Amino acid sequence: MNRRRIAHVALLVRDYDEAIAWYRDALGFVVIEDSDLGGGKRWVRIAPSTDAAFALLLARADGPAQAAQVGDQHGGRVGFFLHTDDFARDHTRLVAHGARLEQAPRHEAYGTVAVFRDLYGNRWDLIEPKAR
């Protein structure tokens, strides 16, 4: 049996603590791990919940080339897709914490969706999938 899975995706950030605060406050994410690696580096994993199968690995940009990519890791495309069981709750939370919404929520065949940008400018879809 094949037991492979994607466990983390690195997300370039300017600062660990500002990123933790924004994702915690605006998205309700939790810190799964925050370990000091020395030399100012940390291993910081955040996720929507402690039992999530997948986590973002916050990676502080190191040097000008990486710093230039903070907020544009996907070339302007939506790069992150956050599913929710309560669109109104999470949309309200995003607005309250200053997420930049690109459009009003819309209803699609697959569910309710809104595109927003995080504190760095990365584009996300907030999606409440339609019940199957």
Rank of each mutant, 00 (worst) to 15 (best):
R123C: 11
E33K: 15
W124E: 03
D36S: 09
T112K: 11
T92H: 11
V13P: 05
A53V: 10
D125C: 07
A47N: 10
Y120D: 08
L119C: 06
A26I: 13
V31I: 15
A131V: 00
V78L: 10
V31N: 05
V31P: 01
D72F: 00
G75K: 08
I6C: 11
Q69E: 06
V70F: 04
A99L: 02
A19H: 05
A109D: 14
A7K: 15
D72N: 14
G121T: 13
R89G: 00
D17Q: 10
R100H: 14
A19S: 10
Q73T: 02
K130D: 14
Y23E: 07
R14P: 00
M1F: 14
A68V: 06
R117Q: 14
T112N: 04
N122P: 05
L101G: 00
V13A: 05
D36I: 06
F87M: 03
I20R: 06
L37H: 15
V30E: 13
W43M: 01
Y23P: 01
L56A: 03
D72L: 02
V78C: 12
R42P: 02
F116G: 01
H74W: 09
T112I: 07
L82V: 15
H83S: 12
D118G: 02
G79P: 01
A68D: 07
A131K: 07
P129Y: 14
D118Y: 06
Q66R: 07
E128D: 09
V13Q: 09
A61I: 02
H91F: 15
L119A: 07
H107E: 08
Y110L: 11
I6H: 02
S35N: 12
R45P: 01
F81D: 09
G75H: 04
D15M: 08
W43A: 07
R132D: 15
Q73I: 00
E108T: 01
Q69S: 08
T84Q: 13
D15L: 12
G63K: 07
R42Q: 08
G63D: 05
L119K: 07
R123W: 06
L94I: 04
R5W: 06
A114N: 08
G79Y: 00
G28W: 14
H107Y: 06
V113T: 07
Y120M: 08
L58P: 00
G40V: 08
K41Q: 11
V44L: 13
I6E: 10
D36M: 04
D125V: 03
V95R: 15
R117Y: 12
E18N: 00
A104T: 09
V13S: 07
F54K: 03
W43E: 11
W22D: 00
A26R: 02
A99Y: 10
H8G: 07
V115T: 13
M1Q: 14
V9G: 06
R132N: 11
L58D: 01
D118N: 04
D15R: 11
A53G: 13
A53R: 04
E18Q: 12
V113H: 03
F87K: 09
Q66N: 02
T50N: 12
Q103P: 01
G40W: 11
G111I: 00
D85Q: 13
D90N: 07
A7L: 15
